[in-house]
Design a binder for these strands. Structure first.
Lengths: 219, 219
DNA sequence: GTCAAGTTTAACCGTCCGGTACATTTGCGT
DNA sequence: ACGCAAATGTACCGGACGGTTAAACTTGAC
């Protein structure tokens, strides 16, 4: 009842063999959960080690210190989000439909990845100072913006969207609402009730977000 | 250069007189800043005491423990926000204009109160568990919603707004964007550049938020 | 078989920090 | 003046926690 160890997928036998990559992956996965749950200072290195079949020592061995581990987690989660944005291809659809799909995708993606949201919240608490030290994140994230840019260009050309739209602002708006939905659920529902967060409420909210974005770009 | 003590406004002389209310207020003000800066586990009780003319001892004397102090801070900041929402009166204005003013007020209010935003972020990290223990916050916050409800009713009656609008969702949307603007500035600007956060960018963003809300309620 | 590099363990250390014990001072009522 | 309770100062404790030490084990190259 008290222990539920192991996270690693079945890879190498690894009973007592050396398999550093798997150990690192296990640590990273457990750390992601633990940092998302408790924040940087709130997370306990010992607790992370306890989650999996390894020792605290190994965490420092592979990641240097607690902040190094935290940075590795950031790198991983942001990397996969950027990848997801690159993979999303909406070029075949008419502009308004493409934009709708993009909003829905973003909304759903945030709803599905609460750990990501929490890690971003935590990083913002720290003024983004740790992600600044992650080399792979130093490049500006262009994929998400150019995606919207293409949609807008097409939309304007077809006469269904206003001209002079700012793809960056549109992305900001979509992110804002998708993010807030997960990030502030606790305090919002405490203050205003839980109606927006059951299944029906979330569906309505999602559609409302879509509508307001579409309405604000329509010609 | 190293010390900048005292926060208390000029009240009682309080050179070495007892003035518990002022001490409590000082502690609360310093704690608000410190918790907003570093989070619950990240904040140091000693640091809070160092900010003002008091000792760590007094903090535990008046607030019991660290979490008690944190709860007191939550109570104070949420209380003043709710008060601000109650004080805002837009009844004299035409519906669309009233809604515009409400959005602008909310956006600006969040921009001005970064400490509040950060404390709410922190409380959400903790799943809102501490605010649940604050009695004065146990009542649902109705003022903000009924305000919007009145505007919507008037708007529908005048034929300038759609019927079937959800005041709760509108409030959610306004909050989402106003909140995100302050909350995620660090990570957003790191990922997508700083254009939205200089003076011109903020003005444009504010207007964009207004426009998208108005567009989504328009008849 | 030997050796070095990589990997893992268990025990440990120093410090930070929330919280407390206890003495002391202050203001007020009488 | 005196007593008493509220308020404050000082010194300290105990445990948690990030990080380290030193030695052992595993593996593969030669």
């Amino acid at each position: 009842m008290t222990k539920e160890p192991k996270i690693s997928a079945p890879k190498k036998p690894r009973s007592w063999k050396q398999d550093p990559e798997a150990v690192k992956a296990d640590i990273l996965a457990a750390a992601k959960v633990e940092f998302a749950k408790h924040g940087l200072s709130g997370a306990r290195v010992q607790d992370i080690a306890d989650q999996i079949q390894t020792s605290k020592r190994m965490i420092f061995y592979y990641f240097g210190d607690k902040e190094g581990l935290y940075r590795a987690v950031l790198e991983e989660v942001y990397g996969s989000v950027r990848q997801a944005e690159r993979d999303l291809n909406l070029d075949g659809f008419p502009p308004m439909e493409a934009l709708r799909k993009l909003v829905e995708f973003t909304f759903d993606h945030h709803a599905r990845n609460r750990d990501f949201i929490r890690l971003v919240m935590i990083e913002n608490i720290h003024h983004g100072k740790h992600m600044m030290d992650v080399e792979s994140l130093m490049t500006t994230n262009t994929a998400a913006i150019t995606q919207i840019e293409r949609i807008c260009d097409a939309g304007v050309k077809e006469g269904v969207m206003r001209s002079g739209l700012s793809p960056l602002m549109i992305h900001w708006q979509i992110s804002a609402m998708s993010f807030f939905n997960g990030a502030n659920q606790s305090t919002f529902s405490f203050n205003f009730g839980n109606d927006l967060f059951d299944e029906a409420g979330q569906a309505a909210l999602r559609e409302q977000v879509v509508q307001s974005i579409l309405a604000s770009v329509a010609a």
